[in-house]
């Protein structure tokens, strides 16, 4: 991890905090956008057929590692605990609250390394853009080939795909209080600026409100 005083989020140059403050009273926006900076992210690899590994890893992250493709386990609210996304048959992404990843990585290494597991801290590889609101799905559908029908890509589902030709990991959170969908888009740092600009352009017709996440 970079020294905290040198650390800048991938979208720091856009001044999103000031824009969020200016947009606070906005109520007619169809889409809300924000950056969740410094998400803790750990890449975990291991054999799901190895019970010792599954028990050790699942015990450390307080949930059973998901083995059904495109699903997740753990907490929707990261302040409550880590969330585990299925990436591949032998690979998971563990998402934590900012700053919680280092301690968890240490625990995971201690628990899973002895039974064929491998843990890599990839927190600085990607940032997370939060996209929510009544038209959030419409915006995604403009650039993502996934089947995003609400009955198919449900809360808790995740997928690796392309969004406007940028490689992303998409996660659908629990719906907002008003019933509208909410997504988290993990995107590599180097594509974050491009994707943010694309999202804002694609969402322009619905009205955009920048939010603090």
């Amino acid at each position: 991890m970079a020294e905290p005083y040198q650390r800048q989020s991938a979208l720091a140059h856009l001044g999103l905090a000031a824009r969020a403050a200016a947009d606070r009273e906005k109520s007619d926006a169809g889409v809300q956008l924000g950056e969740r900076a410094f998400p803790g992210q750990l890449n975990l690899r291991g054999d799901p057929g190895n019970e010792e590994f599954m028990d050790a890893a699942s015990g450390t992250v307080d949930c059973v590692l998901p083995t059904v493709p495109n699903t997740s386990a753990g907490e929707d609210d990261l302040e409550e605990g880590p969330r585990v996304l299925w990436l591949a048959p032998v690979e998971w992404l563990i998402v934590t609250a900012a700053g919680a990843e280092e301690a968890l990585a240490g625990e995971l290494v201690a628990a899973a390394a002895g039974c064929g597991g491998s843990v890599t801290d990839v927190s600085d590889a990607r940032t997370v853009i939060v996209l929510q609101g009544p038209n959030a799905r419409d915006v995604l559908m403009k650039g993502c080939p996934l089947d995003l029908h609400p009955d198919v890509f449900r809360p808790g589902h995740c997928a690796q795909s392309l969004l406007a030709r940028a490689a992303v990991i998409l996660y659908r959170r629990a719906d907002e209080a008003d019933g509208s969908a909410s997504f988290e888009i993990h995107v590599t740092r180097s594509f974050a600026d491009y994707l943010w600009v694309w999202l804002e352009d694609a969402a322009g017709e619905y009205g955009v409100q920048v939010i603090e996440v």
Binding site: P69, N70, P89, P145, L146
Partner: peptide, 11 residues
């Protein structure tokens, strides 16, 4: 075989 039906551009 793992992720289900996906668009050609992902492959």
């Amino acid at each position: 075989p793992w992720c289900g039906p996906r668009d050609e551009i992902e492959f």
